[in-house]
Structures are given as structure tokens and as C-alpha cells.
Amino acid sequence: MKVLVTGGAGFIGSHIVDQLLADGHEVVVLDNLSAGSRANLPTDVKVIEQDVASDLTPVFAKERFDAVIHQAAQVGVPDSIRDPLHDASVNINGLLQVLEACRKYAVKKIVLASSAAVYGTPIELPVSEEHPLIPLSPYGLTKKTGEEYLRIYQALHGLPYTILRYANVYGPRQSLSRESGVITIFTDRLCRGEMPTIFGDGTDTRDYVYVEDVARANLLALSGGDNQIFNVSTGSAVTLNELFFALTDVLNDQREPCYGPPRLGDIRHSTLANGKIRRAFGWKPSVSLAEGLRRTVEWVKSQS
């Protein structure tokens, strides 16, 4: 199968490329390299350096893709609040460019990266796919809107899709220079001898899923789960305090955490149910938090 991975030079996208290649697929990457890097990819992978919000029909006309895995996105919640126009340009207009090209050139399947941000403040935990969608940021809203566009394109044009709502993804290749996930931030600062700040009392919880497990879910979605939505998560709640001490154990660092005031708008607790994807694909998280942190620490150290 010939697969286009938008944002394929980025954090999650590059791991998806690795797994697609290992599974024998032909892969093309489209990435403007604003956040991604060619260094994340094998040298023989074709990279089209182009913005996803531009006209993609010449690319699709030439390459004739069988499927698209759409990872290209503006992913920063604070960035979406500061600049909602840019957020919408990438996350809505970019998706529409992809969908229109898929429609015109008979792509057989699209897999969309969505986010736990579509849910907003959880009413109950763990959050299932049927939970109400009440996003709290422009980022969450554009992800919710993107999901609706896929539903409409399937209904109007018969384009099959699968939507994957990611929990907090972490692992090697997550950017150290841009706004990163908390694990990468904590790891980078601890490795540099600095002390990261835990906002609040450290009892806030998140669901941390390793990037290779997320990539595997994308690979499975190419051949199943048509016109369905799945959480990609561990289903386990980890407090910030637990995360901090798990990292310091890996680093053999005996320092105590530094606390700051809670941040306005932060959700206290978020855990996503993963029973649906387990039943549909037989998928389950295979990398434990301890092992994932060890691999992440090794990667961060290798970047210094």
C-alpha cells in the first residue's frame, strides 16, 4: 500500500513511518519541517517539503496514494489560545486540503490524529469515546471540527476514515525546542541539572502513552475500524508526583520536586478508556511507563 504521512518528519509521524516501512508499505512524507526534521526519517524516504494548508492536488495527482495518515497539526494548546487564526489555518484548512485531494484522487482510507482535548473537563473517568465533546481551547475545538469534517466527507463522498484520539503521547523525538509534553520537559531539565516546576500540588493525573504504541495503532487503523473513533491510551492515571519520582529513579537523582501555583484552565484529572480499541484491533499498550521513561531519558541524553 502506498501511504502518505502528513507531518511524517515530526515526533509521532516519524514513528508511524518507521512502522509502515517495517510492515512493507511504500511511504511518502509531506512536512513543512517547521517542527519536524529530516533527521527523524530514514534517508531513503521521499519527503515533500510543503505546507499542509497549501494546494495538495498536484502531489496527489502525481503520487496516487492508497491511504493517508494525517498527523500534520498545530498541537500547542497555549499557542492555539495566543493565535487561534494560525491554529485554524493548520488544523482545519490543512485538513480540508487533504480531504479535497483524497476526494479528487480516490484515496481509499484516511486516518486522523485527534486528541483527548476534544473532551474538555471529564464528567466521568476513564473517559470513553461516548463522552460529551466540550473542548476548552481553540486547539480542542479545531480537532473536534476536524472529526466532523471526516464524518461529512464519508457521508457525502464515501471516504472511509478512522479517528484516533490520543492521550498524552511521549517518547523519543519529541521536540526539545518547542512546547513539549510534560515528560520531555521534565526529562530535559533534569538532564541539564535544572529543576522542573510542578504546577499545583502534584496530584493532577494524566494518561501517558508511549509513542511506538500510538504508531502501532495508526498502522492497525489502515485496515480496520472504518468510520469509527478510538481512544489511544493506557487507561491508567499517573500523578505528576508519581511521574517526577519515576523519572528521578531512572536518572538516579535524589532531588525533591519544586512546586508552583496551579495554572488557570488546567484539567485536574484525565484518563482515557481504551476498551474499544482493544476489542476492535487487539491493540494494547506494550511499553510500560518505566520502560518508556528509560528510553526517553536515553534519547534526551543523546541530544546533548
Score class of each variant (00 low, 15 high):
2 K>W: 09
4 L>S: 10
18 D>E: 15
29 V>L: 13
44 D>E: 15
45 V>H: 09
48 I>D: 03
51 D>E: 10
62 K>H: 12
67 A>I: 07
69 I>D: 00
69 I>N: 03
78 P>N: 03
82 R>K: 14
83 D>N: 15
94 G>N: 11
97 Q>R: 13
102 C>V: 11
103 R>K: 14
105 Y>A: 01
110 I>A: 04
119 Y>M: 05
119 Y>F: 14
123 I>W: 13
128 S>P: 00
130 E>N: 09
133 L>G: 00
144 K>Q: 13
147 E>I: 07
149 Y>V: 01
152 I>V: 12
160 P>Q: 03
162 T>M: 02
165 R>M: 11
165 R>T: 07
169 V>G: 08
171 G>V: 06
176 L>C: 04
178 R>I: 07
182 V>N: 04
186 F>P: 00
187 T>W: 01
188 D>Y: 02
195 M>I: 13
198 I>M: 12
198 I>G: 01
201 D>C: 06
203 T>G: 00
225 G>E: 01
229 I>G: 00
235 G>Y: 07
241 N>S: 08
245 F>I: 06
247 L>A: 03
248 T>K: 05
248 T>M: 08
255 R>P: 00
265 G>W: 08
269 H>D: 15
274 N>M: 07
279 R>Y: 00
279 R>N: 14
289 L>K: 09
289 L>R: 03
292 G>F: 09
